[in-house]
Write a protein that binds this DNA or RNA. Structure first.
Length: 726
DNA sequence: ATACCCTTCATTTTT
DNA sequence: TGAAGGGTAT
């Protein structure tokens, strides 16, 4: 029984109940990972289950990697052939094996959101839809949402009622056709197509159903429709499906996650066992009480009461700041105190925020104080232009049908092949039904292209063919190094300013190093293998906890992690909870509850110390946004907060605080400054102080609905209202 | 074909 | 504030 040693009763039950459906409701810090790894170790070590008959799905590659590692530690053996990974990577694996079922080749390319946008623009222009009326971003989001609801092109087209939706349906159809032509898929396709294959091909379904005896799904509260169905198909036969989740930590509804998946588990699987893990091993009582008090404000929960044996603990500190730079200085100061006087390490501290943009000021503050930090996810490494460029070359070499990558590199660096020539090549390719790259073979047949451009394109083609010949022999790192050199990509940087050149070269070198590490560590060294991996890694996966530095990341990225000291910054109404315009009443309520869950996730990351901060004024879009303390702050019982750091001491409860004198900026200058938002407080010469309840339009012609302190609600036009920040 | 200047717009959150 | 797309001059 050694692998189950040290588990509490509930954990033991969760680890040992291996037959039939099982729902583990795991509160924050309740030892979820521990239970999962012990459970797998128990299956393999005690029950003799072969690792390759276990399928475990997690949310991040990091979580998957850690789980595998810990199981191997427990068992003192390798579990390489255990299927463990993210939904996306496992689906990609299935999809590569069964690609022909949906008209793909095994070497298909996975498009990220930048690639998707490029393709979307192309489709919109083909369909002669203006980007004004059909913002690519918005259309892309809509199509993504439909895919995440398992709505395929045909059913969507049938349901499309408005003119707009019918246009979107045409775009959807074209977009999918283009993806297929490019031998490419987007993130959503990985899930949707995998489910389609399982649904429509009995032989494939049988094959995978027969392949796995035990299914494990982590973060079940964050699964969307395709993920839910994927699991359901695979569990159909034996029903050995174990899902772990916490309805209070569901924070991905915007990505199609459906809380109902976890709430309905017992209805979906009538024989389901349910185990609740309610003992928290992570946080002090103070922190846990605060989190409980906050989450209690949400309706529609499964209902859990977390408890801890770690009584007491340091009180929570709450800091009101005038602006974001003061906030950053305060955080930096506390970090230094903790390090110098409290004996804490940098790596035991994390600063969390709602939006990536907030990292800038924090970063600045820490840098000035000479504090080591690392940012997770700000400008994502794989999304940098120079990294994407090099990867586009590599992707095109591996998949010559990939027109998005083709368009990216054909004239990068500038080699005299302009848009018109490419457009003519494209016309020809369309007429002949060829991929763009293939069309290069027939250059002499395209008489619309000037001879000079033909010559340049031909030499591009020959260069690429040279790379392609090496594809199957040459290790990925060597090939990549050749590409960077021979395409002139690096030497082209000589034209840039020294700073820019250095930064870009560094990123390219970093990419080459990444490929090299891959080639050394993985048992497959091919470019194909590298690309398969690289398309599915996220920034959190790159996070190193070995380095002694303060971690900066979004609340979303922090899920699943823990730190002795946690700062949650930017606790301002409108920013956290973030308030979007144009939400329906019901949606707004759901959105607010999701924000609250996000706050709950943030609080429960902390083991020993929790610091909360907000800024009255924050720079945004080059202007200023004035804010009030987050409504969530008053949900924390006062006695949990350090006296002197309480909200009543600092005095920021919106209705009790009266403004002194209006700040200098006025709305008439809003072209240069003063940005308003729903929730902002304003001052009107005759009506007094009021809060913006709704806002339509932008700039000077914006219409505002303002509720004033005397209770009156007025609709005002920004231009004439003579409002000042309040 | 490209370089440069102008405008516009966006900021949730991520596999 | 900034990135990125569009337009114009060379």
């Amino acid at each position: 029984m050694s692998v189950l040693e040290g588990l509490n009763d509930a954990q033991l039950e969760a680890a040992q109940t291996v037959d039939g459906p099982l729902l583990i409701l795991a509160g924050a810090g309740s030892g979820k990972t521990r239970v999962l790894t012990r459970r797998i170790a128990y299956l393999i070590g005690e029950l003799g289950v072969e690792p390759d008959r276990i399928l475990a799905m997690t949310f991040t590659n990091k979580a998957a990697g850690e789980m595998r590692e810990r199981v191997e530690e427990l068992l003192h053996r390798s579990c390489r052939n255990m299927w463990i990974g993210t939904f996306h990577s496992l689906c990609a694996r299935l999809l590569r094996a069964e690609a022909d079922r949906v008209g793909l080749q095994t070497n298909f390319t996975i498009y990220d959101s930048t690639d998707q946008m490029a393709l979307m623009r192309r489709v919109l222009s083909d369909e002669e839809l203006s980007e004004k009326q059909y913002p690519p971003r918005q259309v892309r989001a809509r199509i993504s949402r439909e895919k995440n609801r398992m709505m395929d092109v045909t059913s969507f087209a049938q349901r499309a009622s408005t003119y707009y939706e019918q246009a979107v349906a045409r775009v959807y159809r074209q977009y999918q056709a283009r993806l297929r032509q490019n031998n490419a898929v987007d993130f959503d396709d990985l899930l949707q197509l995998s489910v389609q294959i399982l649904r429509d091909h009995e032989d494939v379904r049988k094959k995978y159903q027969g392949q796995f005896d035990y299914l494990l799904i982590d973060e079940y509260q964050d699964t969307n429709r395709p993920q839910y169905l994927f699991a359901q198909y695979l569990a159909e036969l034996h029903q050995n499906i174990c899902v772990v989740g916490d309805d209070d930590q569901s924070i991905y509804a915007w990505r199609g996650a459906d809380l109902q998946n976890i709430l309905n588990f017992e209805a979906d699987y009538p024989d389901a066992h349910v185990v609740k893990l309610e003992q928290n091993y992570r946080s002090t009582e103070v922190i846990l009480d605060a989190s409980n008090a906050v989450i209690r404000n949400n309706a529609g929960r499964k209902g859990k009461e977390l408890w801890t044996e770690r009584g007491g603990g340091e009180k929570i500190r709450l800091k009101k700041c005038t602006d974001e730079s003061e906030e950053a200085r305060w955080i930096a100061g506390v970090v230094q105190d903790l390090k110098q006087q409290g004996g804490c390490k940098y790596k035991d501290m994390a600063v969390l925020y709602r939006t990536n943009a907030q990292s800038r000021s924090i970063e600045e503050g820490l840098r000035r104080a000479g504090i080591a930090y690392q940012i997770v996810g700000d400008v994502r490494f794989y999304e940098r232009k120079e990294v994407k460029d090099v990867l586009a070359y590599l992707k095109l070499i591996a998949n010559p049908r990939d027109s998005v990558s083709f368009n990216r590199v054909i004239n990068t660096p500038r080699r005299g092949i302009g848009n018109t020539s490419v457009a003519r090549l494209d016309d020809y390719a369309m007429r002949e039904g060829l991929p763009l790259y293939e069309a290069l073979v027939h250059l002499d047949q395209i008489d619309t292209i000037p001879a000079r451009a033909i010559r340049l394109m031909r030499s591009f083609y020959e260069m690429m063919e040279g790379f392609r010949e090496e594809l199957s022999h040459m290790p990925a790192d060597e090939l990549a190094a050749r590409v960077v050199d021979e395409t002139g990509y690096l030497s082209d940087m000589d034209k840039m300013t020294p700073e820019e050149r250095e930064s870009r070269k560094n990123h390219v070198q970093e990419l080459l190093a990444d490929i090299q590490i891959f080639a050394e560590q993985s048992d497959e060294v091919s470019l194909d293998a590298y690309l398969r991996k690289v398309s599915l890694v996220s920034d959190v996966d790159q996070w190193h906890d070995a380095v002694d530095s303060v971690t900066l990341m979004t609340l979303h990225s922090a899920k699943g992690l823990e730190f002795p000291t946690v700062f949650i910054s930017g606790l301002e109404d409108g920013l956290f909870p973030i308030l979007r315009l144009g939400d329906e009443e019901g949606d707004a309520q759901d959105a607010l509850e999701e924000e609250r869950r996000l706050f709950y996730v943030g609080i429960t990351r902390a083991q020993d110390r929790l610091y909360l901060s907000y800024a009255m004024q924050r720079r945004r879009y080059g202007g200023f946004l004035t804010n009030n303390a987050s409504r969530f702050l008053i949900e924390i019982p006062e006695d949990l907060i350090d006296a002197g750091f309480r909200i009543s001491e600092i005095g920021t409860i919106p209705t009790t605080k009266r403004r002194k004198s209006p700040p200098a900026l006025s709305l008439h200058k809003s072209a240069e400054g003063f940005v308003m938002n729903v929730g902002s407080w304003v001052y009107h010469p005759s009506w007094g102080r009021g809060q913006i309840k709704a806002l339509t339009g932008a700039g000077q012609s914006a219409k505002l609905k303002v509720r004033f302190e005397d209770g009156a609600t007025k609709t005002l036009v920004a231009k004439f209202a003579n409002l000042q920040p309040g």
